[in-house]
């Protein structure tokens, strides 16, 4: 009977996010509830896209992580803005180029891990330096402007329903389906649980992981493309905040750092938690230093009180 009372690990961040939404609303009046949530959904959508990619890599097995996501995000944003040069008609080529840049970056990450036998932390870190340099040479200090249509899409909300977060929810649903019901998804989780066992079962682990890294790069690039439209252009530091956040939302969302256990829906809870907390602390006019301390303390607290995904 007591088993039923135990909540799934990923529900905790949803509960905390809800509590923060209520606290913010209680402080600044019921009228602000809708706009607070709308803003959290819009900002949270970016964290979810990049977090979903990071989840694929982290689920691929212990030690797998992609530290290059911020620089891939920035590079893809620069490349696609340079291709589109602000013209609406170039939107599709711009998107395709961004995604190709991301997929190539992810594949390069994995090839360095495979061929040089580097730990993923080091390989993706070294590549991130290289990608950063490319972005720097492409755009320099300047901000490259996005086409008007892209900017309009990221904030498009007919009848008060935001389209972009809705699309990202579709992405989450797709990720759930892929992990649960496709051969590749099952192989990914199997490789994450036990690489030797997966290999004996006939899984080509390196190919499964190559796709995971390429997928992570692609989703980081998509984040960069959308973020450039949302925030008015590609800027050199646009990816910085997403290095730690992409990892935090995945782990708080219930994905095991040891690999083999992924949770795409939980990323939404963690992303909303992050953004609603920022809003709440802003509303309460709390100083920047205290805000950072509370953010860190809450991350540790949630990870410490949540029951282990693997009890055994």
């Amino acid at each position: 009977m007591t088993r039923r009372l135990v909540l799934a690990p990923w529900t905790y961040s949803f509960i905390v996010a809800l509590a923060m939404w209520i606290a913010t609303t209680a402080y600044s009046g019921i009228g602000s509830a809708g706009s607070t949530l709308a803003a959290a959904l819009a900002f949270g959508a970016f964290s979810v896209v990049i977090g979903t990619g990071q989840m694929l890599v982290i689920a691929a097995g212990s030690g797998n992580i992609d530290l290059s996501v911020p620089s891939v995000l920035t590079l893809a944003a620069y490349v696609s803005m340079a291709v589109m040069t602000g013209h609406d008609g170039m939107l599709v080529p711009g998107l395709v180029v961004a995604l190709l840049v991301g997929a190539a970056a992810g594949a390069l990450n994995f090839l360095a891990i495979l061929l040089l036998r580097l730990p993923p932390i080091i390989a993706t870190l070294a590549w991130s330096f290289v990608f950063q340099s490319f972005a720097f040479n492409l755009g320099g200090e300047a901000t490259l402007k996005p086409p008007a249509l892209l900017s309009a899409f990221t904030v498009w909300a007919p009848g008060g329903i935001e389209i972009m977060p809705l699309c990202v929810m579709g992405l989450t649903a797709a990720a759930v389906f892929v992990l649960r019901s496709t051969l590749w998804g099952r192989s990914l989780l199997a490789s994450g649980q036990s690489e030797p066992a997966a290999r004996l079962a006939g899984v080509r682990v390196w190919r499964v992981r190559l796709i995971a890294y390429a997928g992570c790069g692609t989703l980081a690039a998509l984040t960069g493309f959308l973020l450039a439209g949302f925030s008015g252009g590609a800027a050199l530091n646009m990816g910085d905040a997403y290095l730690l956040e992409s990892i935090a939302v995945v782990v708080l969302g219930g994905t095991s750092v040891a690999g083999g256990r992924a949770n795409a829906v939980g990323i939404w809870g963690a992303a909303l938690f992050f953004n609603l907390m920022a809003t709440m602390l802003n509303t309460f006019r709390i100083e920047a230093g205290i805000r950072l301390m509370l953010t860190g303390a809450l991350i540790i607290l949630i990870i410490a009180i949540v029951p282990k995904p693997r009890a055994a």
């Binding site: 782990v251 301390m293 509370l294 860190g296």
Partner: peptide, 12 residues
């Protein structure tokens, strides 16, 4: 993840 959270605490 714990040290990730800690990095925010120290910076704060």
């Amino acid at each position: 993840i714990v040290t990730l959270g800690l990095s925010f605490v120290w910076l704060g």
